[in-house]
Write a protein that binds this DNA or RNA. Structure first.
Lengths: 295, 295
DNA sequence: ATTATTAATGCGAAAATCGAATTGATAACA
DNA sequence: TGTTATCAATTCGATTTTCGCATTAATAAT
């Protein structure tokens, strides 16, 4: 059955006059007659009583008028929603990110994206010890953030941010920004560092720093959570090394000192994910954290 | 847009394989390809990602799969209901009847009809002093019952019942069935009779009886309600004349004696009412009250 | 490099649909 | 009572759409 048949039916049901109705719908009267007949034949139900002089709806016709009107309107709404989904103006975007950007970068991105696409629902998924690339590949999330260029082939990525890695000390520590020269000054300090189950890429970067200063840090505490490390630094338990973006939202009593080393933040997604929401998200993220671009 | 397009879409969305899906739906693969393409072009939305080797639904496609499935099911239900309405298996039937058959005939008809057509809702409309023919013609009810052949041209009717008119006396009245000969015996009795706003046809029949016995009844009380008259007869206030069908459900203490006069019961409906429920109602009524038939 | 798989496409035939004109039946009017 | 006006159904030839068959093109598997 053709939805146009139903539209023609509704037009005739409004006018109850074949010629008038056909003219309003820009078809000929003969076409309208045939459409209605075809519809009636297909249903096996007479929709109009025509007495050569007057056209009126049958009981079934009256029923179908209201029901089909409703269903056609629903069809339209469904199609409009589909177009929104297609254009990335509506839908769901699941995001996973390391805790390191929870307070500094994610809020900016979320606010910017929600403003631009208010009808897209954001689901922030907590990713702790799992490899974030796997979580993207497993369709658990659509977009992930990772420190370092993604390893997996079928992931696409964009570099969003390059930031210094910082040494973090208690603000009562004898060495402060004024007297800080290089990391070698801390060779005998107790370090608190991320655990090994954290992002490999970042850990590699991190653990390649110390040998350059000729020492291996004495690790007295391990944690994946930067905020945990920060609060222990604030309590004077030792020093730590974290991306500079942790400075925003850090507790009182800690001091960040940039090291001459950097870490990058990449946004990653499935290469075969053609959904426009992804494209929109890339665009927003790029606009918010203006950096160059990458494949 | 054609609903078949949507069916083809749903078929492909199930299989995610053009050839398999097309074979299941008894069309060729080329036809299916073109249907899907036509649908996508019409919507302006890509529904499937096809990578020459794998077919998968887009976000919009996934959405439309569930929504269109639901809408198509609704379409089917609506059509089924329309067919029921058309066949007279469902719908509403509004009935008006004189109070004279409320206890004797209507219950039988209602029970029989409800058993045969359980999905047709019966609305019993109380018709008191209004002309029942007008109530049918005004579309207030679909079917009416009238004592006598209908007057109006555009009404169709069927004779359902011919029954005696009865004299009703108190069971302590000196004249009882054994001693009853004719109505002339009651020329000096106090009569209680229907009021003039009752059905004209019946009143004409009724008031033509007395002259045949050479007297005019002494009317001491008038009422349209046969049950009222009966209860007064039971209290010994006088005698009355009513269709024999009142005997069923009459109060204790009254005695019915058939007169050699008859009244008929007709079912009436709008001649131009083509609704099958009417036809079904006629059939049921005829079967329940087996009598001949009439135009 | 070769083969198998599979969606898209070109092509002629078949089917559906269209508009213009005609028909047939009824209501309105003279 | 005969005539006209109205209006839905129908006929007919032309156009458009849709179909199946065969082929093409692109990819994955061997």
């Amino acid at each position: 059955m053709n939805l146009d048949h139903i539209r023609y039916f509704l037009g005739l049901a409004d006018d109850l006059h074949f010629w008038n109705a056909s003219e309003k719908m820009n078809i000929t009267q003969s076409a309208l007659s045939r459409h209605i007949k075809a519809l009636e034949d297909e249903l096996g139900v007479v929709l109009f009583d025509r007495t050569k002089r007057k056209v009126s709806l049958t009981a079934a016709g009256t029923f179908l008028q209201t029901e089909w009107q409703r269903l056609l309107a629903e069809m339209d709404n469904v199609q409009r929603q589909a177009r929104l989904l297609d254009s990335g103006m509506a839908g769901v975007l699941r995001i996973g990110h390391p805790s390191s950007i929870r307070f500094s970068i994610m809020p900016d991105l979320v606010v910017a994206f929600s403003r631009a696409y208010p009808d897209v629902k954001l689901e922030l998924v907590d990713i702790d010890d799992t490899n974030i690339e796997d979580v993207v590949l497993n369709y658990q999330i659509d977009i992930g953030f990772e420190r370092g260029h993604p390893v997996h082939d079928s992931l696409a990525s964009r570099l969003l941010l390059v930031e210094p890695i910082a040494l973090v000390v208690n603000d009562k520590h004898p060495i402060q920004p004024g007297s800080f020269t290089d990391l070698g000054q801390f060779r005998d300090e107790p370090f608190m560092l991320p655990a090994h189950c954290h992002s490999e890429l970042y850990l590699n970067t991190l653990y390649q720093i110390f040998p350059q200063y000729g020492f291996t840090p004495r690790v007295v505490f391990e944690s994946d959570h930067g905020t945990t490390l920060l609060s222990l630094v604030a309590r004077g338990m030792g020093v730590t090394v974290l991306p500079m973006s942790y400075e925003k939202g850090a507790p009182a009593g800690v001091q960040f000192m940039a090291l001459p080393h950097e870490t990058s933040l990449h946004m990653i997604w499935r290469q075969n994910n053609t959904c426009s929401i992804i494209k929109n998200a890339i665009q927003v993220a790029t606009k918010v954290l203006v950096v160059g671009s990458e494949g």
